[in-house]
Design a binder for these strands. Structure first.
Length: 423
DNA sequence: CGTCCACAGGAATGACGGGCGG
DNA sequence: CCGCCCGTCATTCCTGTGGACG
């Protein structure tokens, strides 16, 4: 193709884009960060949280609050909304009310939580190097110097506790005993209920002086939410009843995740727009569903460390055999062979077992412990994604593409005798 | 009913790179 | 520069275990 015709083609694309009426009036209204000014079906929760937090307006410390509910049930949005109004009103009064919002999954460790809060206060601390005790003392000092009422929101708090323990919560719940001029109140947000079992009773009772549950939305509630946003996001006539119904139904079947529903609608809108359609049809929603999953898996797999990739590869090979599922030992065998093909030192089985669990929680494979009686106890493992996807991602990896076209027998030498596991 | 497989998964420990304060 | 502590990843050693088989 000559340079000229490339240019023409591009101009054509841009021209068509300009001529086309966009379907979106305001794309932002469907994004995760968008804070609407009303929350359908969350009146009760809003009222409750507001009542718990209200004492802050008079400078009293609100009770600690513990919130749980699955992803996409509006916990984060509602809390942020209530706090933003609260701060607004506090600003009109005397009071120095400050809030921290920490997403524990992103922040990750006790140290980094304190670090983040210190930074938000405008104090510079080394981002590593201090002992936690030292950092905590400084943090307390800064809080006291600020002479304010602090509300600390710890979102996805279960992630923090799961790999850092509940020490940080213990410290934060008794921080008021240390502070002279400031007060701290905590809001913990958790995705799963079982989180409570990980806490010591003392911490738990202190953290959840008040407690509230966000139930998943059902399909009809999701519909209301989607309509609210769709009217903001799209021009009239772009979405119809059928589109909204389908999005809500799909999201409702996955534990009523509103975020999911909004994603579906947004991506479906983008697909429809790109196609030049004047409205969103069912096929766009269906395609959006595939697309979202595809993107997610691609993104996660692409960024996997080498050995996790090798584990995925091993499973990919094993699934080409007639076995109904694989177990840890199978994977470790193949994995070992792959390592020697790539002249890499294999990790221990203990570590591989751990990595398999991590891949499971990433949703790339399904692993569940099963007893085979006389034949031991292991994990039944299956791919949770399309094998073609595995192939596609790894064929772009310079280290892996050389082995990806091998067959199982070529890797393990003679086909290993395998116990019958069908049925 | 006990045995024993093939691991699970906890705990302790270590290597390593980063970054402090002195 | 040193000594210390951090988080992360990995190893080593370990005890625990559901249930088919004998």
């Amino acid at each position: 193709m000559s340079a000229m015709s490339v240019k023409n083609a591009l101009e054509d694309i841009f021209q068509k884009f300009l001529e086309k009426q966009s379907l979106f009036k305001n794309r932002e209204a469907l994004s995760h960060e968008y804070l609407p000014d009303s929350f359908p079906h969350r009146d009760e929760q809003i009222k409750f949280i507001a009542e718990v937090m209200a004492p802050a307006l008079r400078g009293f410390k609100p009770s600690n609050l513990f919130i749980y509910g699955k992803t996409g049930t509006g916990k984060t949005a509602v809390v942020r909304y209530v706090l933003s109004i609260l701060k607004e009103m506090a600003g009109n009064l005397f009071s120095s009310l400050k809030t921290f919002y920490i997403n524990c999954r992103l922040v990750g460790s006790e140290y980094r939580v304190y670090f983040t809060m210190c930074s938000n206060l405008g104090f510079r601390v080394p981002f590593t190097g201090l002992s936690i005790g030292e950092l905590f003392e400084r943090f307390c000092r800064y809080l006291d110097e600020s002479r304010a009422l602090f509300i600390i929101v710890l979102d996805e708090i279960d992630a923090l506790v799961k790999d850092s323990g509940d020490e940080i919560l213990y410290n934060l719940t008794r921080i008021n005993e240390i502070l002279k001029y400031s007060k701290v109140s905590l809001i913990g947000i958790s995705n799963n209920l079982k989180f409570k079992e990980l806490l010591e009773p003392k911490v738990l009772s202190s953290l959840s002086e008040e407690e509230i549950v966000f139930r998943p939305y059902n399909a009809s509630e999701l519909k209301d939410i989607l309509w609210q946003r769709a009217k903001l996001a799209f021009y009239d006539g772009v979405v119809d009843e059928g589109t909204i119904n389908l999005c809500s139904a799909l999201a409702a079947s996955e534990h009523g995740d509103a975020r999911r529903a909004l994603d579906l609608l947004r991506v479906a809108g983008e697909l429809a727009e790109r196609e030049g359609s004047d409205k969103i049809y069912e096929r766009h929603v269906r395609e959006a569903e595939r697309r979202i999953e595809y993107d997610r898996v691609m993104e996660v797999m692409k960024n996997l460390p080498l050995h996790s990739k090798l584990i995925m590869c091993s499973l990919y090979f094993l699934e080409q055999s007639s076995l109904e599922y694989s177990i840890t030992g199978d994977i470790y065998d193949v994995y070992n062979h792959l390592c020697s093909l790539l002249s890499t030192f294999p990790l221990t089985q203990r570590r591989v077992s751990g990595l398999i669990n991590e891949l499971d929680s990433l949703g790339l494979l399904n692993a569940r412990v099963t007893s085979f009686g006389r034949y031991g106890r292991s994990k039944k493992i299956k791919l949770a994604v399309e094998p073609d996807l595995v192939y596609e991602v790894f064929s772009r990896d310079s280290r892996l593409k050389s082995i990806l076209n091998l067959r199982l027998e070529e890797i393990c030498g003679s086909p290993k005798k395998r116990r019958d596991r069908t049925g």
